[in-house]
Write a protein that binds this DNA or RNA. Structure first.
Lengths: 100, 100
DNA sequence: TCAAAATATAAGTAGTTGCTAATTTAGTGC
DNA sequence: GCACTAAATTAGCAACTACTTATATTTTGA
């Protein structure tokens, strides 16, 4: 019927928003260190390597778009990938960019 | 050894650049109408729906990043997806965003 | 050679993004 | 309550993006 990969404008917009969320190197790296794991903000800061404020802002972007979910424990906040589609996307990135 | 999805910074940057290229709704739509096909600029303008100048500028972005390849025939220019990784990426988008 | 069609480029500008630095909020334990 | 740690928020600014409008280039065909 059609050979277009995505044929509804609504799907285009949805995909575009999701892709934008992960198109920033710091955010992509955050998603990579969170793969499978659940980490506190400080652990993410240590792994990714920029300021706490900067990480916090990127976490907020990902959280607001529904990509990340959070859990609070005492005075720390733990983040994990809460959106299965994003997990799938990031996994696919590895196949495309990290294979021979 | 590691559970990170992508573990080299160089891969992160590479992936991030590629993702940025397709993160714009018009560019994603261009890639979708080009799936499999080879189309002239005017055909892309008609399919995607904005000005010729705007399309031309987005085509230039995709061309400069090596995503699209071109072929000139008379006074028309035909574009096609020239990067297999991008084709794979856009295909995967469909799986993620267009399934039940 | 001239007009028309197809595409590309350039200049200007509004809107967005991403950072830094400073401040604030919330929770813990003394 | 106070000091400390963890995290979020705010303000300001520099850089970048995407669009519009106008113009240039290339090719065709009469």
């Amino acid at each position: 019927m059609t050979n277009k990969l995505i044929d509804k404008d609504e799907h285009i917009m949805e995909a575009s928003l999701a892709i934008k969320a992960i198109a920033h190197p710091l955010r992509l790296k955050i998603l990579c260190v969170l793969a499978g794991d659940e980490l506190s903000v400080q652990e993410i800061v240590d792994s990714v390597g920029t300021t706490q404020s900067n990480i916090s802002q990127h976490l907020a972007i990902l959280r607001d778009k529904g990509v990340l979910a959070t859990r609070k424990d005492a005075n720390r906040v733990f983040y994990r990938i809460g959106d299965p589609r994003t997990l799938k996307l990031v996994g696919m990135m590895r196949d495309v960019f990290c294979s021979t």
